[in-house]
Amino acid sequence: MIINILAGGPVDHLPDLRHYMEDNAIWVGVDRGVFHLLKRNIKPDIAFGDFDSVSPEELLFIETEVAELKRFQPIKDETDMELALNWALAKKPKIIRLFGATGGRLDHLFANVQLLINPVKTNQSTDIFLIDRHNEVFLKAPGTYKIKKQADEKYISFVPLTLDVTNLTLEGFKYPLKNRHISLGSTLCISNELISDNGTFSFSEGILIVIRSHD
């Protein structure tokens, strides 16, 4: 199962959502993201939000088109995105993709990146990707991972989410590493590139943010 979640971030940051319309994909709208999905002729299976970012006319349109609508008060402990993501994680899908989660307010951006940590902390097998027009972001716990070269995402960066990432090794990269200790705040692993069709990265402690990007 794949769950695609669209939040209400700026539409000019969105990739072409038609590329993610697999037969087994469930679509989830978050707040104004519900309206953006409907305008693209994608009917979400479920929607979450306080809907304080849509007009009364847009909300009426949403209520008419979406069968399962979970409305919340604006004053609450979780963001609309966290509520939607918790619902998605409970379904135990193979993949969750987050769209509309970048651009606009920086507090929302940092919060959305940190939401990716939940399945990593609980050793859940679900892979979560935060995707916009120029970037794909995901987190990894200690281990060894293969990574494929993609022409449309030339640059690969590795950024510590924890205070330290230990024994980071990069193989098959333009700038290889061997058992390096990377501290929070280091820019050592920004803008690397694969030099072959496949590479590997590994580390023994910490949590790593992996960012695939293109200009």
Score class of each variant (00 low, 15 high):
V120H: 00
V113Y: 04
Q150D: 14
D107N: 05
L130T: 05
E58Y: 10
I156P: 08
T144V: 11
E153N: 15
F99R: 00
K148L: 10
E65F: 01
I95E: 15
R133D: 11
T64E: 14
A141G: 11
F61H: 10
I131R: 03
I95G: 01
L139G: 01
G143A: 04
K91R: 10
K91D: 00
L130Q: 08
T64Q: 13
L59M: 14
Q114P: 00
Q114D: 11
D164E: 15
L106F: 13
A101E: 05
V159I: 15
N135D: 14
L116Y: 00
E136M: 15
L109E: 01
E68S: 13
G103E: 03
L163Q: 14
V165I: 12
L163E: 15
A101S: 15
D77S: 14
K121T: 09
D132T: 04
Y155N: 12
T126R: 03
T122H: 12
L60K: 12
L163T: 12
D152E: 12
D152Y: 06
E63P: 03
A141E: 06
N86P: 01
V120A: 02
I156D: 04
T126H: 07
T162K: 05
L98D: 13
V159M: 15
L85I: 14
I96R: 04
L85G: 09
A67I: 13
I95S: 02
I128E: 11
A111I: 00
S157W: 10
L98G: 08
L115S: 04
R97W: 03
L89F: 01
K146W: 14
I131D: 04
M81L: 15
G103C: 05
I62N: 06
R97M: 05
A88H: 09
A88N: 06
T64A: 09
I75A: 13
A101H: 08
E65L: 05
S125G: 06
L60V: 03
K154G: 10
L60C: 05
P119A: 07
N118V: 13
Y155E: 12
A111H: 08
Q114A: 13
F61E: 09
L139Y: 02
R71A: 06
Y145N: 07
L109F: 11
T79D: 02
I147L: 10
K76G: 10
A151F: 11
R133G: 06
I128D: 07
A151T: 13
